[in-house]
Design a protein around this nucleic acid. Structure first.
Lengths: 164, 164
DNA sequence: CTCCTAGGTTTACTTTTTCAACTCAGGCGC
DNA sequence: GCGCCTGAGTTGAAAAAGTAAACCTAGGAG
């Protein structure tokens, strides 16, 4: 017994992240939220998702802190709730952008990508409207690493399992 | 009729990418493949996934070009098949890294991340073993854009739907 | 000629997802 | 006050997906 040890694949932030946003629809809901959607019927109409499932997903995203359930009241109507993206939710943008890039590269519409993500800013200073892409860079400042130039190493919270 | 028009949310590379790698287990299988796993029983043992489901996922990842089914033969055994990551599969690393970063930031083990992705290279020249992270940069050279500094615009393949 | 093993397939069961219909609470016109 | 409309869900039955465990299978070893 006691062969080599390797990082336990179950104790991994990828798996934990996927347990929150890995279900069908979750990331698409976040994408719509990033696009400014906040209301139940708008999510439902834009995604074509079933109402009960949307309710369940919104609940779990709220529980995970990705969305915030906020009461609002439009003049002349009763109080209702909307779902606002939190900081956590905004921080899923790189994930969505990585998926967008991969989809554009390998599964795009023949006419080209349907969505281009561009740089802008509230103040004019940095607004340039140029397309944005994902880049891998290391703490030593090496930029644009190819996917083959990275490897996984155990971190402080690593657990190990024996492999045979 | 004919309100404002917006990008059709169904005609989107994020949705297409998720139709390939968005099912439960798919990205974890890719993660293991990136980690060097190629064989059925290794995937099964490391992930704890049911055999029939693993078979189905491997098939669909092969059909999507993420994995390649390659015959091999170990001396003294019959020919078997293994599943090798393709270029498409490797290009999912940024997606996995984005999920890893998000999970580390918001769902980490109290002791810290279990996995740290580091920079290395086959030739010593660029090897530095520093941690790698995802960065958003635009074509004009602006780097490290915060998630709030980007927005979606229609691309050449965009389709539109009326919104009320 | 039987056993072993990696790589699956089958079967039976449980859970999720889907679709459509229904509810609910308040505001509004009358 | 009464019925109607609307946004935001809930309910329930059917279909699809996932799980666990037993079973199959082809070639090499003994």
């Amino acid at each position: 017994m006691g062969g080599t040890r390797r990082i336990d694949p179950a104790n991994c932030s990828v798996a934990r992240a996927l347990s929150v946003v890995g279900e069908r629809w979750s990331l698409l809901i976040v994408r719509e939220a990033i696009d400014g959607v906040t209301r139940f019927n708008d999510f439902r109409d834009r995604l074509g998702i079933a109402g009960n499932l949307l309710a369940a997903r919104l609940d779990s995203l709220v529980a995970a802190g990705v969305l915030l359930r906020v009461p609002y009241r439009e003049p002349g109507t009763r109080q209702r709730y909307e779902y606002r993206l939190t900081g956590r939710g905004l921080d899923l943008r790189p994930t969505l952008l990585a998926l967008l890039e991969w989809g554009d590269r390998y599964l795009a519409d023949p006419e080209g990508p349907s969505v281009v993500v561009r740089h802008h800013s509230a103040d004019d200073e940095h607004a340039c409207e140029e397309p944005v892409r994902i880049s891998l860079e290391c703490a030593a400042g090496h930029r644009d690493l190819p996917p083959s130039a990275i490897h996984r190493t155990p971190g402080p919270g690593a657990r190990f399992v024996d492999s045979t």
